[in-house]
């Protein structure tokens, strides 16, 4: 009973952070941008979903859709403001990181001015039912969160594998120089990548606000965790990010059960540091089939 409770919690947390980590990972490897703007994307998507629930309808797909679309929109915004002007300037990695961090802070501040400091609650989009599987009680939001994340992740992976745009993005992840040689435009691909990863962050925001609230700076912790999980998985690897998310989700669940919630960040980052000491390039090094060059 105890163990299953910890496990389900771990999986739920992993599902949410995994979405952001995969988004960070894809952005880094295809565009060479460490996007710290997901904090803003996250809150922006949360407010989009909240506005939809307040003003139009509380119908769950509509609320989630508003969050996803809002995330994609915020992603494209970051792309237009930071990525496109900066991407071929010297020292882009650092500039891009600072630029996106600036967007994150400015955007969150703007949200604070617009909506005020009071946290908003989203409607329970998954309802209030629960299932009992062999003594393990699964509540509706746990099941909903995991299913939605897996669907989204599955969709993204399928799209990257199957479609022409996905092929372009994967080509750019592996060799941006060669990508331009085969006629792949960095800027237009950048818009696709940022819209897609923004949508992932948007969904993560809606899912996380099933347990927490929507607030102007609510994106900060998910951002930090997402970036460090992506780092842990080896920036640029989707599988690595997923595995790292599961490990850190487990750490979070175990810590909050046995030590208390206030120790979560401490143990999590200790684990991250440990993994990076043992495997400096993250978990994905173990999974690579082909060595670089």
């Amino acid at each position: 009973m105890e163990l299953s409770f910890i496990l389900t919690n771990a999986i739920v947390v992993a599902a949410i952070y995994g979405l952001i980590a995969v988004a960070v990972s894809i952005t880094w490897s295809s565009l060479g941008l460490i996007n710290l703007g997901y904090g803003f994307v996250f809150s922006f998507a949360g407010y989009c979903a909240w506005l939809m629930a307040q003003n139009v309808s509380e119908w769950p797909p509509l609320v989630a859709g508003a969050g996803i679309l809002g995330g994609a929109l915020a992603g494209v915004m970051i792309c237009l403001v930071v990525f496109i002007p900066l991407h071929d300037k010297p020292n882009f990695t650092t500039r891009g990181m600072i630029g996106t961090l600036a967007i994150s802070l400015i955007g969150s501040q703007a949200l604070l001015m617009q909506f005020g400091p009071r946290a908003k609650a989203l409607p329970e989009i998954f309802g209030f039912w629960q299932v009992d599987i062999g003594g393990v009680i699964l509540t509706s939001d746990k099941i909903g969160i995991v299913v939605c994340s897996i669907l989204m992740l599955g969709f993204v992976v399928m799209w990257m594998r199957g479609s022409r745009r996905g092929l372009e993005i994967r080509a750019m992840m592996m060799n941006p120089h060669a990508a331009s040689i085969v006629g792949i435009g960095i800027r237009s691909t950048g818009v696709y990548v940022m819209a897609m990863t923004g949508a992932m962050a948007g969904l993560a925001s809606v899912l996380l606000s099933q347990t927490y609230y929507v607030a102007p700076f609510s994106g900060l912790t998910p951002l930090i965790k997402g970036v460090s999980i992506a780092l842990c998985g080896g920036l640029g690897s989707v599988q690595g990010a997923v595995i790292a998310a599961v490990i850190l989700g487990l750490t979070e669940a175990v810590t909050s059960r046995y030590l208390g919630g206030q120790y979560v960040l401490i143990t999590q980052f200790l684990v991250i540091i440990l993994i990076l000491i043992v495997r400096p390039r993250g978990i994905s090094g173990l999974l690579d089939k082909a060595r670089e060059q």
Binding site: R164, L167, E168, R170, A171, M173, M174, N175, H177, A178, A179, I181, V182, I184, K289, A290, R291, E292, Q293
Partner: peptide, 14 residues
Amino acid sequence: EIFTGLTVEEHLDS
């Protein structure tokens, strides 16, 4: 200037 992780077929497609 190849994409090390793509298959030969995906390469030709690209």
